[in-house]
Design a protein around this nucleic acid. Structure first.
Lengths: 297, 297
DNA sequence: ACAAAAGTGTTTCGACTACACCCATGG
DNA sequence: CCATGGGTGTAGTCGAAACACTTTTGT
């Protein structure tokens, strides 16, 4: 009656260090922290995940949300594997590294997602030609590629990280496809991860890019106090775009998202900067407080 | 090593008829279509859900997205029950009813969510007094209640359907809590459903209310052509608020979301209205096309 | 005629953008 | 001094909100 299902939990743990978004992996692997959900010692799935990460990586997670449940993998004789993926955000200052945890640069996984120094070359040099071949004269494929990669006059939508990964997967441009199907295609892009872990990271990046503009999640990645410059750099790292400094300052200050502490940070490389902190009251004042990226509408 | 997990899929199937949002249930019950995921005959979980709904309710779903995976229920000796909930939207015109499927008014489940005729009386008459008692002098509870229910000057955020249900659950104001814990509290609100199905519907309503303003999902609930009045009524039904007619028209037309067909609908009760259709090209033009509700930022 | 619903014009308001510019510190 | 980053002013643009109003049908 009830079949055996292999149930796993996976953790996409993100932080930003040195202006790079990065995801936690198990040292020496390209695998996310993950484990079987074998018993019922935890009251909730989220608590099970927290325990799992504590045991595997020695870190107590703060912000955690459920990401997505993946169940489409190749089947095993004992039944389908179901993976419940969670997204966690940690302050780079508190994030461990070394024997227990390693960190992988997200833009090594998705080089086409970092537009901070302009349009990534890989798009026009490698992705577009391959995508064009795949499109052929299919109008459906044409529309999908245009929307997903912002071609033919469509705008680039930073939050479509997952759509882009999935399209590249279908086209055969990412290594996992070759691994899965046994065949290898020339010109694969980005660093691969085991199983469908890169898809999970793409899901996480999509989620947080979308959420930046309507929830103050960004402060989960920063210490208690920070300069506006640091805040801006972290937002830029995640969003993958450069922002206009004077306007960014006003948006977060006038938006009531932060408040000055009166204390100044000295080691800025220039004039000392005031330290700010997240202004919690904003949650009571505005329905959807976030940092507001260009074309968030 | 691997434990037995009871894995189920649940379907929150929404449509709007007679200006009321409603959710599909199995006839004679207050249960969502659901079933065990027992074998691997389906390539993906979503396909398994589609088959399940076809078999149980005799309907082929169109728009489907994964909602959330619930796993916190009371445990059984054979292991935890994991429920993967999906959200589906169907055009009221195509939706069946009768022996195979019944429909339950969403605002019977959540009477406090329908603000189309002003603030629902149940809020001030029943919810607020009970919530105030629960708050006591806890600042944490105070903040949570204020944000969730828009008290003490905080704005009402339509998309927080789930937050509100979960808070009422914790406070003991919804019947499921009594069912689960064996105790009953006086003054429970809204129609209950079996197990955690009402929570799933709340999750679905939250999701779609949030999505209305940045994805053109509303058209999944309408037939091929419609008057702007019909469109507005469906949006209002889901969002639970009245909208300003002239501005609504312009928002969807100038926003490129719809285009006129030149054909007129006669039976409007007044002047004939032009029939419109969804303008698919908007997907190529704008990053996040939606209907734009008041205070969507 | 009048009710009911469709549909248009115009003004105001506020949010975000872009551009130009000044300030304070370290080397 | 000048490089680096901190920080401010202001004008323009665009979309949304509010209000007043006209048009076309059925009864």
């Amino acid at each position: 009656m009830t079949a055996l299902h292999h149930l796993r939990a996976n953790a996409v743990i993100l932080s930003v260090a040195d202006e790079q978004p990065r995801v936690m992996t198990l040292p020496g692997t390209s695998a996310l922290p993950a484990g079987d959900l074998v018993d019922d010692q935890d009251a909730t799935l989220e608590l099970a995940l927290r325990r799992l990460v504590r045991e595997q990586a020695g870190i107590d997670l703060g912000y955690v949300e459920q990401l997505y449940t993946f169940g489409d993998q190749a089947r095993s004789p004992t039944g389908r594997t179901i993976s419940i993926a969670y997204l966690a955000l940690v302050d780079a200052g508190l994030a461990p590294a070394g024997r227990e945890a390693a960190w992988l640069d997200c833009y090594q996984l998705f080089p086409w997602e970092d537009w901070r120094s302009g349009k990534p070359e890989i798009i026009d040099q490698e992705l577009v030609p391959a995508l064009e071949r795949w499109v052929g004269d299919s109008a459906l494929r044409r529309e999908r590629v245009d929307i997903t990669f912002g071609l033919s006059g469509s705008p680039w939508d930073g939050a479509r990280v997952l759509d882009r990964y999935e399209l590249l997967y279908e086209v055969g441009l990412v290594a996992e496809k070759g691994v899965d199907s046994g065949e290898t295609v020339a010109g694969q892009v980005g660093v691969a991860m085991v199983s469908d872990h890169r898809r999970m990271v793409a899901t996480g990046l999509s989620r947080i890019r979308g959420k930046l503009s309507y929830r103050p999640v960004i402060f989960e990645l920063l210490s208690e106090t920070f300069t506006l410059h640091q805040l801006q750099r972290v937002v830029e790292a995640l969003a993958g775009v450069r922002l206009h400094k004077p306007n960014f300052r006003r948006l977060v200050e006038r938006g009531g998202l932060v408040e000055g502490t009166g204390v100044a940070e000295q080691k800025t490389g220039g004039r000392p900067a005031e330290l700010f902190r997240f202004r919690r009251e904003v949650l009571r004042e505005r329905p959807a407080p976030g940092v507001g990226l260009p074309s968030a509408r």
